[in-house]
Simulated assay, not measured.
Amino acid sequence: MSAGPVPLEHTMPPRSDVDEQGYAVLRRLVGDGGVVALTGAGMSTASGIPDYRGPDGRRRVQPMQHGEFVGSAEARQRYWARAFAGWTGFSAARPNAAHVAVARLQEAGLLEGIVTQNVDGLHQRAGAEEVLELHGSLDRVTCLDCGEPVSRAHVQEWLDVANPGFLARTATSGEVRPDGDVVIDPGAVRLFRAPRCLVCGGDRLKPDVVFFGGSVPRAVVEQAFAMVEDASTLVVLGSSLRVMSGYRFVRRAARLGIPVAVVTRGETRGEGEPLVHLDSLLGDVLPRLVEDLLGP
């Protein structure tokens, strides 16, 4: 991945229409400090990594399913062929204004912690620390048979050697999907050599992420719950909350009387939990929030 965050002053978007009453509530809550942020795919769309759902809440792409990946060598071959073709674009993504703003709020002491559903590592590259990756990271790969960990960069090197000329002769959709892969011709997939573990020789190498239908490790869930329970405010950024994996933390906060604020485009799941919901782009709200609370 390319190095270094984008300075906030170089990413400030033009002011746009924002619900000013809702924004005032958000500014007060964040200004009081003790905030925990729960971030979703909407954080990274401005970096060129699309989300699973559009503003209407409907799923736009079919993600890899955990059971299919674990149980089918053909599914693993398809995933790794697509991921190999998409890695250059995915790894080139840079933090956007929203990532930088979140890091600034954390550095200033207003934001206590970050729980992210994203697997792209862009929070850390923007300067954020102690980020809890709820769904893991595409930077890491694990053998499901022997547990051997390996970096995604090394797997990319192996695949390049095992599939010479594959990228040059394979047509892709061009758009990187949320799992870090791209759509490619099925005929090319059938010729692709998927990675094998260098320790046990098994073919069940899996990116260290929670695919749809998989389970977040219990220890990670408990850590996230503890962060939320200690928060003065839970701010949800860029998530429709359609998946219980993230929504459960909103429910816990609401049950404990912790204010919940949501900033995301389109509808969001909730049964009255959010105190305020800003239907706005994060790039329009978060840099402005930093400027108002911390100065330029």
Rank of each mutant, 00 (worst) to 15 (best):
Q106P: 07
E20H: 11
V100I: 12
G42V: 04
S72K: 03
T233F: 07
K206I: 02
E107M: 07
P259Y: 14
S215Y: 14
A83R: 14
V243Q: 05
D292S: 07
Q62L: 13
G71I: 07
T45G: 05
G201F: 13
R104G: 01
R204H: 13
D179C: 00
T170V: 11
E291F: 11
F192M: 04
H123G: 02
R104V: 02
N96Y: 04
S173G: 15
R255Q: 11
R248D: 11
F211D: 06
V141Q: 01
V209W: 00
Q124S: 13
T11V: 13
G4A: 12
G201D: 09
W80V: 01
H123M: 03
R59F: 15
V119H: 06
V6A: 09
P149S: 08
R125W: 00
Y247N: 01
S245D: 06
T268G: 10
E129I: 14
L122A: 05
G71D: 06
R265F: 05
M227D: 11
R177V: 02
F84H: 15
A188S: 15
G283L: 06
G42L: 07
H154W: 13
P195L: 03
P50A: 04
A171T: 15
D279W: 00
E175W: 10
G67W: 14
L191V: 15
A224K: 03
P50E: 07
Y52R: 01
Y247D: 03
L26N: 10
T170H: 12
D56E: 15
A261R: 05
A24H: 11
P186W: 08
V115A: 07
G31C: 06
V36F: 05
D179I: 00
